[in-house]
Design a protein around this nucleic acid. Sequence first.
DNA 1: TCATTACTGGTAATGGTTTCCATTACAGAA
DNA 2: TTCTGTAATGGAAACCATTACCAGTAATGA
Lengths: 143, 143
Amino acid sequence: MGIPAAAAGRPAGLPRVTRQGAAVRAALASRTEFVSAQELHAQLRGKGVGVGLTTVYRHLQALVDSKQVDVLQTPDGQTVYRLCAREEHHHHLVCRHCGRTVEIEGREVERWTYRIAEAEGFVDVEHTVEVFGTCGECAARRS
Amino acid sequence: MGIPAAAAGRPAGLPRVTRQGAAVRAALASRTEFVSAQELHAQLRGKGVGVGLTTVYRHLQALVDSKQVDVLQTPDGQTVYRLCAREEHHHHLVCRHCGRTVEIEGREVERWTYRIAEAEGFVDVEHTVEVFGTCGECAARRS
DNA sequence: TCATTACTGGTAATGGTTTCCATTACAGAA
DNA sequence: TTCTGTAATGGAAACCATTACCAGTAATGA
Ligand SMILES: [Mn+2]
Ligand SMILES: [Mn+2]
Ligand SMILES: [Zn+2]
Ligand SMILES: [Zn+2]
């Protein structure tokens, strides 16, 4: 009675495994930079994988909610996603030309935000820290 | 010949002084938190000040371009504006409930972003650093 | 006062994201 | 394997904040 031992697949009865879900995740995994839902959708369609745009949005949101994917808004306001290597909290250094992305970590910044917030009496704090610039290659290419 | 001594008003021949421009700036000055263009427009209309939504957007953008106003996107993606006290580069600690905003400065963070970017070969770097949380009052109110 | 032209603002167009909802197809039960 | 309940799908329509148009208005300098 009770919980089947081989409950490995997916805990309890959560998201079903579908062709589309796998496709979205795979598409994201194939890209190393941040990409938009529309870009991913176009990429999938281009390779003949039938997936609705709505579904792409849904899976991306689910991945974000489960902390498996990072999101950020580019300076020009579009939402982009990325399947990051490290699971722990981190930030990004992004080339505004080619999109090349480097995951960065900063103990000092973490301590700083916490200290500042506490000093002002704020609790339940979260922060966004993103760095944009021109990577070496792009800088050379346009010199 | 030459430049009139009393060129105080507005340097050279740049933006004209209009009722609407003053209204938008005044409306922003009356608010201490970050507000959206739509909110400002509604506030102005509510007080009987006739200003078109398009014009509100235009003036906000102009104020942003001339560094007189700060912009940021809330976690839920809406663009909000604020007339800050200090002109120098700084960041914000914002209450996600009441919008109360504290201007913060962080030499360490500035140095950190610069150092990281340089180490990775990035140039022409800019960064976004915003801290969101629940302020003391709001924390008490919902305890 | 007059002419020049930047500014204004209503309306239409954009464009990314979400909502609807009828259809499809996982996955556990029989 | 087949049956079934229901989560997932996806095309179309709705949303909605922001922008583009452009004819009318008004600030400015002569
Ligand atoms: Mn951090
Ligand atoms: Mn800074
Ligand atoms: Zn680059
Ligand atoms: Zn508050």
